[in-house]
Amino acid sequence: MTVLFQLFFSFFQIGLFSIGGGYAAMPLIQAQTVDIHHWLTLTEFANLVTIAEMTPGPIAINSATFVGMKVAGLSGVLVATLGNVLPSCIIIIILARLYEKYSKQTLLKNVLENVRPVVVAAIFTAGLALLQLAVGSISLENLQLDIFALIVFILAFFILNGKRLHIGPLVLLVLGALVGIGYELVQQYLFV
């Protein structure tokens, strides 16, 4: 029962504070599921983000379902998802009523424009955590750099950022999976 309540409340907070779409929700999901409640390890979280990128639907709903199922089965799925969309339901219905009356709200627009830098900083922080996990720790006393992952990261970044190749994230992830399997094959059968 307490677990269900925690799931509900965690994903309620994620829903309430993620302003500006999926990537804004990501650092919050990490904070709640990895740092605070330890429902996922950082590796599992990274895998979850990967899965969420490859399946349809908002990343927050995907995460709520995945974590809910892992922690408490089907009832966990329902509670976490409900918690996640409840803030949206309440806030949007209030805004929709206001919209039907006034049509525009400049204060909200202004406030959100000013909150934006924080959202970018939060996404940046989450991105760095994912990068560190992918390529290994970069500290002087303990240099364990995964050269393979670093190369994949750099290539992927520049392919996404470049304008010449139109390769979407989904295709890039599939390529990444194939490269990962290929690398493992090479290690298994060539360097025995």
């Binding site: 990967t50 996990l133 992952a149 670093l150 994949v152 990261f153 992927a156 994230p169 290929g182």
Partner: peptide
């Protein structure tokens, strides 16, 4: 292989 792509 996919984790560095997601980070990217």
């Amino acid at each position: 292989g996919m984790r560095p792509v997601v980070a990217a």
